[in-house]
Structure formats: structure tokens, C-alpha cells
Design a protein around this nucleic acid. Structure first.
Lengths: 108, 108
DNA sequence: CAGATCCGCAACCCACCAGTTGCACATTTC
DNA sequence: GAAATGTGCAACTGGTGGGTTGCGGATCTG
């Protein structure tokens, strides 16, 4: 259900380094070593974080020869937002309206 | 800023028990012992979780004599949703629209 | 081929956190 | 006043997760 998915997303976004990685990847897709070169942690640590984000469905791995490039897949964010809007919508008109919008996926 | 606030919210919502507590409180305000009586954990564990949720700004404590009743304050949820919409909005039209809605306060 | 670069896997610290128990304090109730 | 109930604080334990180092395999480049 959306329950477990939202939980995975919250767990992934709970760590500051993972939020930073996600923002960086959202700005521009990158490989693990590229990300590690701009950060104060090792490549293996970055890989672990990317695995967590990927397990939450937030990243897509694309292999090209020797390196692997990660890009954002924002769909699970919508489910997590839907959970929050459902919990808090009863007290907040703004969240309530969002809950309605999030209820049905974008008809593609 | 909204950054730190969103981080605190994600950290608070990362634990399944805290999400369950928040849903329960959203459904009906309650005290720590009331919540603990319906859950398989001790009252002190519930209190710790409520402290985390309260530190994220998601709960309001109201003392009445001997017991303390907790209720939901959903405002920080909106900030966390704003962060997510900002990160993912570039790739998802649905999230992009939400980002605009969350950007400004309730126009009513 | 040889060196360099990128990746994955495994083992190992270390810190933090969920949960517990125990005890002291405040408040209601009899 | 005394018992019962609700809360807070402190110490302890087990488990999980972030981070590191080391090594071996795969792939590009000279």
C-alpha cells in the first residue's frame, strides 16, 4: 500500500546527507564517485545512501559502460505527501485541498 | 528555515510507531497512558516518541490537572511537503502544481 | 598488455535510538 | 491522611545504521 511506500520515503529522507544527495541528483544526474568527490564522505558511504534512496523508489540506476548514473524518480514523493495530507488535512484547509489533488494520479 | 524543519519532520515520521501515534492522535487527542494502553509498548516509550513528534512541532501539549493531552499541529507537515514538491516538481507536473499551492499561505 | 578508473562486497568501529525497568513527584479520590 | 493514578527523570541494554578500510572484479585508455 501507500503506507509502506511512505514509510520508506520518510526513512530515506530522514538523513541530512541523503536529502543533500537527492537535491544534488535532482539538480543534475550523477554517478557515485562524482557525488563523493564533492562531499566529505567516501564513495562507499555515498553508495549506501543511494541504495537507501533507490530502495525507497526515489532513484533510477542507468548503467553506461563502466559507470552508473543516478537520476530522480519523484513518484514516491507524491505518495508520501498524500499520507501527510491525509493525516493533517482535517485541521488545515490548505492540506485538505492538496489531499484532493494528490488523491488521483496525473492522467498520463 | 524550512530546511531544518523539514528534516525534523522526516526524522519524526521515519519510525512506524511514531506514524501510528500521529495517526491515532490525529483521529482523536489522547494522553500518553491512553495511547500506551492500546499499544504493545510501555508508557515511557510512548512519551519518548511524543517528545520527538513534539520537537518536530507536530504536537501540542495541553495539561489539565494530572494528565497531559496531546493534539496535532499539522503546520510542519506543510513545510515538509513544500520541500518534497520543490525537489521533485521539476519532473512531475502534479508535484509542480502542488509546489505553487504550498508556496503561499491559505488565500482565504 | 599495463595502468588507471569505477564499481561491488565484506568486515569492522562507533554512535545513536527504541525500549525497558526502577524510582520519585504531583494530583485526584476515598 | 492514605491509596491510586498519571507523569517525569535516569540508567541500562540490544539493535540498527552511518562511516570507514580493504580487496577483487570489470571496464576504459595508453
Amino acid at each position: 500500500m501507500a503506507e509502506d511506500s511512505a514509510g520508506a520515503v520518510f526513512g530515506a529522507l530522514a538523513e541530512p546527507m541523503r536529502r543533500q544527495l537527492l537535491q544534488s541528483i535532482a539538480d543534475h544526474p550523477a554517478t557515485a564517485t562524482e557525488l563523493a568527490s564533492r562531499l566529505p564522505i567516501s564513495r562507499q558511504a555515498v553508495t549506501k545512501h543511494l541504495s537507501s534512496l533507490s530502495a525507497a523508489g526515489l532513484l533510477e540506476r542507468e548503467r553506461s559502460g563502466r559507470d552508473i548514473r543516478y537520476r530522480l524518480t519523484p513518484a514516491p514523493l507524491g505518495e508520501a505527501m498524500s499520507w501527510m495530507a491525509e493525516v493533517g488535512g482535517q485541521w488545515d484547509d490548505r492540506l485538505s485541498r492538496l489531499s484532493l489533488t494528490l488523491g488521483r494520479p496525473d492522467p498520463r
